[in-house]
Design a protein around this nucleic acid. Structure first.
Lengths: 133, 133
DNA sequence: GCTTGACCTTCCAGCAGATGGAAGGTCCAT
DNA sequence: ATGGACCTTCCATCTGCTGGAAGGTCAAGC
C-alpha cells in the first residue's frame, strides 16, 4: 500500500503521514523503489491517530495513547487519565472562549457599524479596565 | 520609560513587547544607551494590544484595529466587521470544542479507569466509524 | 520505445505568536 | 570597583503541519 492509498483511506494528507513517520509515530517499510509500503497494521495506526487528533489530543497524547493501545497489559486507568486531562484542557479553553465571546458579542451589538468614527469596540480596547454593564 | 516599566504596566512580558516592535506594531525611540524609550502613546498602544490579544484577536487583526483606532476618520463599520468576523471564528471554534467535549466526556464516563486493559476510549479511537449511543 | 501524467521521494522554508537562553553592555548603590 | 538588576541582540525552539522545488518511478497509450 502506497502513501496515497493510505491518505485516501484515513483522510490524512500524505504530507501529514510523512510527518508522522518523521516524528516516529509510524515506521512503514520501504519498497525497492524507496516508496513507503504500509501494511494493515500501519493503516490501522494511522486511522487511530486521525481519530485521536480529531478529538483534539496533542501529538504527545497520541503517542501515549497509541502505546497504551498496543500494550495488551495496559490499565484502563492510564488511558482514562490522558483523556481526563485533555477534557480538562478543553473545558479551560471553552471557558476562555466563552468569556471572549460574551465580551465581543456585547461590544459588536453596541457598535452602530455605520460611517461615523464613534465606536464602543475601540473604546473598550483602549480602556482595558472598563467593565461592560 | 524602559521596557520593564512598560511590561509591568501592561502586563505584557518584555519579550513580547520586543517581538511587537520586531513586527512593527510599535516603534519606540531609543535612548543614547540603546535602551528602548517608551512614551505614553506607545504605552497606550501596548495596552490596547494587550487587551485586543486577550480577546483573541490575531496579530493582523490587532494591526488593523490599531490603525482604525488611530484614524480619526474611520467608519465604525470597519471596526465592527473585524470584530464580527472574529466572533464568527470564535463560534466555529466553540462548536468544534463542544463536539470534542461531548464525545470525550461520554467516553471518559464509560471507562472504568481501573487496572484492567478493557477500555471504551481506546475502542472508540480504534474504530473511527463507531457512533456513541 | 517514448512520452505523458500521476505517482512517489527528499529537503528546505514558513505559518502564528511567542518564549528561552546565551553572550554581552549599562546603570546604580554600596 | 563590585554586585545585581537592568538592558541589548541574536539564534533556537515550541506545535502541527503545509507548500514548493527538484527529481525519481510507474503504467498507459501511441
Amino acid at each position: 500500500m502506497n502513501i496515497g492509498d493510505v491518505a485516501s483511506q484515513t483522510g490524512l494528507p500524505a504530507k501529514t503521514i510523512r510527518y508522522y513517520e518523521d516524528i516516529g509515530l509510524v515506521r512503514p517499510k520501504r519498497d525497492g523503489n524507496g516508496y513507503r509500503a504500509f501494511n494493515s497494521a500501519e493503516l490501522h495506526k494511522l486511522a487511530f491517530l486521525a481519530r485521536s487528533r480529531s478529538l483534539g489530543f496533542t501529538i504527545e497524547d497520541c503517542r501515549a495513547l497509541l502505546a497504551l493501545y498496543e500494550d495488551r497489559g495496559r490499565a484502563s486507568a492510564d488511558v482514562k487519565l490522558v483523556a481526563h486531562e485533555h477534557l480538562a484542557r478543553i473545558d479551560r479553553k471553552l471557558a476562555e472562549l466563552e468569556a471572549m465571546r460574551s465580551t465581543l458579542s456585547y461590544l459588536v451589538e453596541k457598535c452602530h457599524g455605520d460611517d461615523r468614527p464613534d465606536c464602543p469596540i475601540l473604546d473598550d480596547l483602549a480602556q482595558p479596565d472598563a467593565v461592560p454593564s
